[in-house]
Amino acid sequence: MKKYKITVYDEKTGEKHTIEIEMSEEELEELAKKLAEKHNVKVRIEKV
């Protein structure tokens, strides 16, 4: 498992949230996809 920083940005409201999380790359990609689809936000992932 690796550490990642996830930034979620909502273009409508301008809200931006960043968290650090430790998980596998596959789980992370699935999480990012679900966030983007369900909440209509942009998701950026960076390795820490």
Rank of each mutant, 00 (worst) to 15 (best):
M1P: 08
M1Q: 11
M1L: 13
K2F: 14
K2S: 15
K2D: 15
K2G: 10
K3A: 04
K3F: 06
K3R: 12
K3G: 01
Y4L: 03
K5Y: 13
K5Q: 09
K5W: 13
I6N: 00
I6V: 09
I6Y: 01
I6L: 06
I6F: 02
I6H: 00
I6P: 00
I6M: 03
T7Q: 03
T7S: 05
T7Y: 08
T7L: 05
T7V: 07
T7K: 02
V8I: 14
V8W: 14
V8Y: 13
Y9V: 09
Y9M: 06
Y9N: 01
D10P: 00
D10M: 03
D10I: 04
D10G: 01
D10A: 01
D10T: 01
D10H: 05
D10Y: 07
D10R: 00
D10L: 03
D10K: 02
E11C: 10
E11N: 05
E11I: 07
K12E: 12
K12T: 12
K12A: 14
K12I: 15
T13D: 02
T13M: 03
G14Q: 05
G14D: 04
G14L: 04
G14C: 07
G14S: 03
G14F: 03
E15D: 07
E15M: 12
E15K: 12
E15S: 08
E15F: 09
E15H: 10
E15V: 08
K16V: 15
K16A: 14
K16L: 14
H17M: 13
H17E: 06
H17D: 03
H17K: 07
T18D: 04
T18F: 06
I19K: 02
I19S: 03
I19H: 04
I19T: 04
I19Q: 04
E20W: 12
E20S: 05
E20G: 01
E20H: 10
E20C: 12
I21A: 07
I21F: 06
I21C: 09
I21T: 04
I21V: 14
I21H: 02
E22S: 09
E22V: 09
E22D: 06
E22N: 07
M23N: 01
M23G: 08
M23S: 07
M23I: 14
M23R: 01
S24A: 09
S24N: 10
S24Q: 08
S24H: 13
S24T: 13
S24M: 13
S24R: 11
S24E: 10
E25C: 09
E25I: 08
E25R: 08
E25P: 09
E25K: 06
E26H: 13
E26T: 13
E26S: 11
E26G: 10
E26P: 10
E27Y: 05
E27H: 09
E27M: 09
L28I: 11
L28Q: 03
L28T: 04
E29R: 13
E29I: 13
E29Y: 14
E29T: 12
E29F: 14
E29N: 12
E29W: 14
E29G: 10
E30I: 11
E30Y: 11
E30G: 08
E30A: 10
E30R: 12
E30D: 11
E30N: 12
E30S: 10
L31A: 03
L31H: 04
L31C: 09
L31D: 00
L31W: 13
L31V: 08
A32E: 10
A32F: 14
A32Y: 12
A32V: 14
A32P: 03
A32N: 06
A32G: 07
A32W: 14
K33H: 12
K33R: 11
K33N: 08
K33C: 10
K34Q: 09
K34P: 01
K34G: 07
K34A: 11
K34N: 10
L35M: 08
L35K: 01
L35T: 02
L35W: 08
L35D: 00
L35S: 02
A36W: 10
A36L: 13
A36N: 09
A36F: 12
E37N: 10
E37W: 01
E37R: 07
E37P: 03
K38C: 05
K38D: 10
K38Q: 13
K38L: 15
H39Q: 09
H39C: 09
H39D: 11
N40V: 05
N40R: 08
N40K: 06
N40F: 04
N40L: 08
V41F: 06
V41E: 04
V41D: 06
V41Y: 04
V41K: 08
K42Y: 00
K42R: 13
K42M: 04
K42A: 06
K42V: 14
V43E: 02
V43G: 01
V43R: 00
V43M: 01
V43H: 03
V43D: 01
R44L: 15
R44V: 15
R44M: 14
I45V: 09
I45D: 01
I45S: 01
I45P: 02
I45C: 04
E46C: 08
E46W: 00
E46S: 06
E46V: 09
K47C: 12
K47S: 14
K47P: 14
V48D: 05
V48Y: 00
V48P: 04
V48I: 13
V48N: 04
V48Q: 06
